[in-house]
């Protein structure tokens, strides 16, 4: 469904953020991208929908090659890729509803969106999504009145209302407390399953990734170091990705947390 071929990004400063990355994501697969800060996780995600222009390489979404598209064709393809951000990236001075509806911008013309005259079907879908994430009665609140977890839910709605085939998720939990982090991760993964979406989730928290996803990619210095199932993440693997550290601790913690999960 998504295929990256020799994807490379070199910043003007000379930093090589991605070194010829090859990756294939089948439809409906939720994948976690782990790795230390500066490993190129963010760049990878942004090269897919070309918020960052890749230096070379190809990105196939379905049959469409994205890196050579002109701006209007690119916009059409971006509608098929919902994006969820670390700091939520909601337009803070707009209402929750406007933020959700802004996911439809690729589908409606400028004046319709400017006058907030979205099609009724979009509005219904927005209500349905808000209801699904439990924020229905917040629709007319301004985004900056919400808590972090609530904002991220709105961000999820905005991505889903695009009716995407793929979710690009950039550190969805980095600004949230542990409990909310888990709720958000679970929500994302549930929604992906419900709708059969593929997702690439950048995440710092290895333990959290292990709980929810089907496949883990480890990135180090812009190259893929690990590709496998979450339970194949051994201390040795983590050492190759992150460097020397006592990893037993992290992995044990996961087990405990999974027990916690099962208890209630």
């Amino acid at each position: 469904m998504l295929r990256l071929v020799e994807l490379t990004k070199t910043y003007p400063t000379g930093d090589q953020a991605l070194k010829a990355v090859n990756l294939e994501v089948p439809a409906g697969q939720v994948l976690a991208l782990i790795g230390p800060s500066g490993a190129g996780k963010s760049t990878l995600i942004r090269c897919i929908n070309r918020l960052v222009e890749p230096t070379s390489g190809k990105v196939y979404l379905g049959d469409v090659e994205l890196t050579t598209l002109g701006s209007s064709a690119l916009r059409r393809e971006r509608r098929r890729m919902g994006m969820i951000f670390q700091e939520y990236a909601l337009v803070e001075r707009l209402t929750v509803m406007e933020n959700v509806l802004s996911g439809r911008l690729g589908y409606v013309g400028f004046w319709r969106s400017f006058l907030r005259k979205f099609p009724q079907a979009d509005i219904d879908e927005a209500f349905r999504l808000l209801d699904r994430v439990g924020l229905l009665d917040m629709a007319d609140k301004r985004a900056d009145e919400l808590s972090g977890g609530q904002r991220q839910r709105v961000g999820i709605c905005r991505a889903l209302i695009q009716d995407p085939a793929l979710l690009l998720v950039d550190e969805p939990t980095a600004s949230l407390d542990p409990k909310t982090s888990r709720q958000i991760m679970r929500l994302i993964c549930e929604l992906c399953e419900e709708r059969g979406l593929a997702a690439i989730i950048n995440i710092h928290d290895v333990a959290l990734a292990q709980i929810f996803v089907q496949r883990v990619i480890g990135l180090r210095f812009g190259a893929i170091e690990f590709d496998g199932k979450p339970d194949e993440l051994t201390p040795e693997v983590l050492t190759t990705i992150y460097g020397e550290e006592d990893w037993e601790q992290t992995i044990e913690e996961v087990d405990e947390e999974e027990l916690d999960e099962a208890a209630p």
Binding site: T95, Q120, I123, F127
Partner: peptide
């Protein structure tokens, strides 16, 4: 709410 119009407050 489904089917109702939505207007920016």
């Amino acid at each position: 709410l489904i089917g109702t119009k939505w207007k920016k407050p």
